[in-house]
């Protein structure tokens, strides 16, 4: 963590992929948890199939894979508080915030455009 003190960047983690079918969601979450130590201004946006990462009632027993969805509940303890879900992505998938494992802030596509514009760095998963 050399030479990073004093410099705060707005880092946006862009999560667009569903869990389990590929590893991106899990490994993205690992980045966010490690990244918390750097004390940057971070936000997570879940859009497109990324909204499925936050679906309640994930049961992976028969899959033989670890259910990592409870880890999203730990984000708060890591001071990751800006967690956004795109409204349109949820709607076209028949989901509402009641289906999600953690409380999130819902943002319209237009607001997502604005937030992306304001970020310093976009990390895409």
């Amino acid at each position: 963590m050399e030479e990073t003190a004093g410099e705060i960047k707005k880092i946006m983690y862009v999560n667009r992929k569903a869990p389990y079918g590929t590893i991106y969601a899990l490994e993205a979450l690992e980045v966010v948890l490690i990244g918390a130590a750097f004390e940057q201004d971070v936000m997570m946006i879940f859009m497109d199939d990324g909204v499925f990462q936050l679906k309640k009632e994930q049961d992976t027993k028969a899959l033989g894979v670890k259910n990592f969805s409870p880890t999203y509940r730990a984000l708060e303890m890591y001071d990751v508080e800006k967690i956004y879900v795109e409204k349109e992505s949820m709607e076209v998938r028949g989901l509402t915030v009641d289906d999600l494992i953690i409380p999130v802030e819902v943002k319209s596509n237009e607001e997502v455009t604005k937030m992306m514009g304001e970020a310093d760095v976009l990390l895409n998963f």
Binding site: V14, R16, A119, N124, F125
Partner: peptide, 17 residues
């Protein structure tokens, strides 16, 4: 080279993977 120029001309890159 033009790709590199575009990344410097604009302030950040969003990769729609």
């Amino acid at each position: 080279s033009g790709f590199v120029d575009l990344t410097t001309e604009y302030d950040k890159v969003q990769s729609w993977l």
